[in-house]
């Protein structure tokens, strides 16, 4: 029984990291239809932010989170104002443009911080194990899980219980009609993009203590994030949660039974098969387009 529970928790932990990484992308892609190839680099900047705030200002990870969120969100805002707002009607061009921005950010990080691998110190209060029904789990993983649950709740509240969220949903459903009712669609888009970017920054900072920090780190995460979003269905927040959990559990169980190499291949195969029969993803909401 312990064994089953342990695998379940491992899957949840992997899933929560996936959700953390994918949430920002899901929001930007789901609401604005922008395929943001620079998502991985926003994440990388968050991780470097955590490293730099520690190295130069002595700030611990937890104290840095707010600064990192605001910093990366501000950068996202500038990117949206400077580039993406001109490309909304040209989806292919946004892929190219955001990919280019990603390359620029990657190389800037390399030039400024150097190409060597970095690490981010784990907050000392989160080192240690937590006992959950007789299974010991790394405290930091539990923290990530709780943090992601909170981020998700805040995002849900923002989208479904605030006037900003209502405007956003109106713009997503029919931009021109929403504009007729006096909603400033441009402003809504900029803020949403900034929010998504900020979430990516937080994700980078939070995964950094478990993984390594390098200018290229974003590339692997952005691929994972796209799997989650595509499988979950683009317009559905809960679809993103369901698909992150599913992928996390699948990864955990298959890696335990076989190994990580086979798990990766089988998970990809499962995604391909699912997409074949449900191209819209697991969950989808109907919208006018």
């Amino acid at each position: 029984m312990d064994f089953v529970l342990q695998q379940l928790l491992t899957g949840l932990s992997i899933g929560s990291i996936l959700l953390l990484v994918a949430l920002g992308l899901a929001i930007i892609y789901g609401t604005m239809g922008v395929i943001n190839m620079a998502h991985g680099e926003f994440l990388m900047l968050g991780a470097y932010g955590a490293w730099a705030l520690k190295a130069f200002f002595g700030l611990g990870l937890l104290e840095s989170l707010v600064i990192i969120f605001i910093g990366v969100a501000a950068l996202g805002y500038l990117v949206e104002r400077g580039v993406i707002q001109f490309l909304y009607k040209r989806p292919l061009d946004t892929i190219l443009a955001t990919w280019g921005i990603g390359v620029i950010l990657q190389q800037s990080a390399r030039l400024l911080a150097g190409g060597e691998l970095r690490y981010v110190e784990m907050p000392s209060i989160l080192i240690g194990q937590v006992n959950i029904f007789g299974v010991s789990v790394a405290g930091y993983r539990v923290f990530i899980f709780a943090f992601v649950a909170a981020m998700f709740a805040i995002t849900w509240f923002l989208f479904y219980r605030t006037s900003f969220g209502m405007k956003l949903r109106a713009v997503v459903q029919d931009q021109s009609m929403a504009s007729c009712f006096g909603i400033n669609a441009k402003r809504i888009y900029s803020l949403t993009f900034a929010y998504g970017a900020g979430l990516a920054g937080l994700a980078g900072a939070l995964v950094a203590p478990l993984k390594s920090v390098s200018p290229e780190m974003g590339t692997t995460y952005v691929v994972d994030a796209f799997f989650v979003v595509v499988l979950g269905g683009a317009q559905s927040l809960f679809g993103t949660v369901a698909s992150a959990t599913l992928l996390g559990e699948m990864n955990g169980v298959l890696a335990y039974w076989y190994n990580d190499t086979i798990a990766k291949a089988l998970v990809l195969l499962a995604i391909v098969v699912l997409i074949r029969f449900r191209p819209q993803g697991l969950f989808s909401t109907r919208i006018r387009s």
């Binding site: 491992t10 932990s13 992997i14 990291i17 993983r141 478990l210 993984k211 390594s212 692997t220 990864n251 955990g252 890696a255 335990y256 190994n259 990580d260 190499t261 798990a263 990766k264």
Partner: peptide, 13 residues
């Protein structure tokens, strides 16, 4: 066992 190059999720291991 062998993990893919660049692998970074070792919880199952």
């Amino acid at each position: 066992e062998y993990v893919p190059l660049g692998h970074s999720e070792f919880s199952s291991v």
